[in-house]
Design a binder for these strands. Structure first.
Length: 265
DNA sequence: ACATTGACCTGAGAGC
DNA sequence: TGCTCTCAGGTCAATG
């Protein structure tokens, strides 16, 4: 689930629930989720008594500054999510890390597939650099000129390029499909070959899709009927032309697209 | 440089 | 019903 829109929704959720709560205890059920070198003991020790003060999202990462010097870093992998509620001893299935607050509530970091990260960093900016993350897809500094420049500097398939977190952070397999469908571009087109008009449309559609998805709370059911996502499956009908949606292997993932609306040339 | 593959995990769904 | 196979919204390392 967690690409940029999903993580933005998690951010809003955390803001509305766990923000300003004081951490009383941290329970780590799945140690492998912890950032390399971080022990459950250390996480607990460093967070105890701290309050969650401010959140920010960069790409697929959610960073939560505490009232101390450190920020909590969450990455959700493919199946991570958050759940806040009154603490009771039988935690939900798949809770990886549980942050208990002194008000009797707890924030669950839940992750079925255990691919994800819970970490603690001193310097958020430094962390983002260390992770080699590019500019956030919705950062105002990423204007259409910068976007085009990034595209021209590479010669990769446009889907691969959109998903490359070191160039633009936040877009994954699902939303790259939607953005490419809305821009009517074939996933395997090379970024170096895109015209100015195509790049400009791609930029606009990237914003449109991400904004729309956030407004829809990242729920495919709530997306406009012109969107691919709710029909992202082999043999489903294209919302534009009624043709069949096809899978194609691109970038080591399965891309779904409309061969009619998204021509290769 | 760029693309692909397999690994890391577990569950859901398809097919037999 | 139960088994086996494949696949899944993420990233990383190794390989062509």
């Amino acid at each position: 689930m967690p690409e940029l829109p999903d993580v933005q929704v998690f951010k809003q959720y955390l803001d509305a629930t766990a923000l300003h709560q004081t951490v009383d205890k941290v329970e780590v059920m799945v140690p492998r989720l912890l950032q390399k070198g971080l022990s459950a003991r250390s996480l607990q020790y460093r967070l105890k008594g701290r309050r969650f003060e401010q959140t920010r999202r960069h790409g697929k990462y959610l960073l939560t500054a505490t009232d101390g010097a450190e920020s909590l870093v969450l990455h959700f992998g493919m199946t991570g999510r958050l759940q806040y509620g009154k603490f009771n001893s039988d935690t939900p299935d798949y809770t990886g890390v549980l942050f208990r607050f002194d008000n009797g509530y707890a924030l669950d970091y839940i992750n079925v597939r255990k691919l994800g990260t819970v970490g603690l960093v001193e310097n958020a900016e430094q962390f983002l650099r260390d992770e080699d993350l590019g500019i956030d897809a919705l950062d105002a500094a990423l204007d259409t000129a910068h976007f085009a420049e990034l595209a021209r500097a590479h010669n990769k398939s446009v889907k691969c390029w959109l998903m490359d977190q070191s160039l633009i952070a936040g877009i994954g397999n699902i939303y790259s499909d939607e953005i490419l469908f809305q821009a009517r571009l074939h996933p395997k087109r090379s970024t170096a070959d895109l015209s100015d008009a195509e790049l400009s449309k791609l930029y606009r559609k990237m914003h449109e899709v991400l904004d729309t998805a956030i407004s829809a709370k990242a729920d495919p059911e709530q997306l406009p009927s012109s969107y691919l996502l709710p029909r992202r499956e082999k043999g489903q009908r294209c919302p534009e032309c009624g043709g069949k949606i096809e899978p194609i292997s691109a970038c080591g993932r399965t891309a779904y697209y409309c061969p009619e609306c998204q021509r290769e040339n």
